[in-house]
Design a protein around this nucleic acid. Structure first.
Ligand SMILES: [Mn+2]
Ligand SMILES: [Mn+2]
Ligand SMILES: [Mn+2]
Ligand SMILES: [Mn+2]
Lengths: 220, 220
DNA sequence: TACCAAATTTTGACATGTCAAAATATTACA
DNA sequence: TGTAATATTTTGACATGTCAAAATTTGGTA
């Protein structure tokens, strides 16, 4: 029914909509999906005619109920698959995103439910990203990041929002992953620098951009 | 690189080629893949230009080395995935064919190898179909079927070539699956009838067509 | 308020797969 | 050996996604 292309557009819009409620520009969608601006515009017309988004030319788009539900299901598949690849198949958390990007369009509801069951109905994926419920509800918790959390004391890593494979591998080498504990050794605005100490003992030097993508739970 | 459409065409040709060596008509390919005759002809030109088949108009096609290798890999993926779905995910053998038909185009070499490893490098899929090696070699064993095997004595089911879901479910209800033992209670050419007794005790009445799709190993 | 730079949409083109129906080739048989 | 039934190919059309480049709109600035 809905092509994998349409699914990717919907998922993209959904993810952007997660972070703010104003209408989303076609240009942003185009850059996220790495297509030409005109390509995104053309697709917005298609989605609009299918009742999956509302589209006001030059103003932007919003998902409808129907579009939102569909997108949430695609995202659910994506994240369950990622976790399955890590937990059951033993893949590295840095590799699963690109695998899931394809598999999310090929896995049936039956297979997805079996994965979900084998994983014990999990609520977050290997990166700490929340998994939409089978009914399509996404519960985004608010967490501080390494640049917004209070200094001093142990922090539990709960989520890493920068999914680039190289970055994830770097973090893994330093033992920085959801569930692990870290401590901020120093943080200096002017120097755009955060130094994190992980339980591995090693200190990791990060700029503010990457540091902001590591979300933590302040010490219990 | 190669689209899932091309992969399905190659796999189709490959499967037909395992049963006879003469050139394969575009009409047969079209009917197998449920596309219009002209559609298959158009694709034959594409495949031919890509060097994946040799094509003589009105005569038929043959896979080249390159095409054969590609097709064997698609078939390998298909069969490993089927077995994974049955053994690891707990799906029924009647459901996995259609699932694998999609997944075979979405699973990476990395994930496939993990599946293969978890399954202990298997040589046959849930239907007893042989799995091509990682290098693309397919070893088809010759087995007699319920209409060609000798009468009397126990027979071990080794393969079921009719993959229709309803038929497979019927067989399962009667305990007829690869690895199980059966016995031919009666076989009558003129009546187009084979009566099989399985270890479940129940007798199953089959016509010659379905009976021919059940391959067996004569009692040791 | 008029203009300009940036963003967006439109246009024209192309690639891939598909079909229905017309044209053509093959083959069986009369 | 000629013809007719059958299979195959060709033709013209369409659906989906994509791009480059031209045209248009928007919103800020002079
Ligand atoms: Mn995707
Ligand atoms: Mn993730
Ligand atoms: Mn397929
Ligand atoms: Mn099979």
């Amino acid at each position: 029914m809905t092509s994998s292309t349409v699914e990717d557009y919907l998922k993209c819009i959904y993810l952007i909509q997660t972070r703010s409620t104003d209408p989303i520009s076609t240009g942003l969608i185009a850059s996220q999906l790495k297509v030409a601006p005109g390509t995104a515009t053309a697709m917005m017309k298609t989605l609009s005619e299918s009742g999956l988004i509302t589209y006001e030319p030059y103003r932007g788009v919003r998902l409808t109920q129907a579009g939102s539900k569909l997108a949430a299901h695609v995202l659910r598949r994506h994240r369950v698959i990622e976790l399955f690849l890590v937990e059951v198949m033993g893949l590295n958390w840095s590799d699963v995103h690109s695998e899931a990007e394809l598999l999310e369009h090929a896995v049936s509801e039956l297979v997805l439910d079996r994965m979900d069951e084998m994983l014990g109905r999990p609520s977050v994926d290997p990166h700490g990203d929340p998994i939409p419920s089978p009914r399509g509800v996404l519960r985004e918790k608010e967490y501080p990041s390494l640049i917004s959390c209070p200094l001093g004391g142990l922090l539990k890593v709960v989520r890493v929002t920068d999914q680039s494979a190289n970055f994830l591998r770097l973090l893994e080498r330093h033992g920085i992953m959801p569930g692990k504990e870290v401590e901020i050794a120093s943080r200096e605005d002017a120097a755009d620098s955060v130094i994190v100490r992980s339980s591995s003992g090693k200190a990791l030097h990060l700029g503010f951009r990457p540091a902001a993508s590591i979300l933590v739970e302040p010490g219990e």
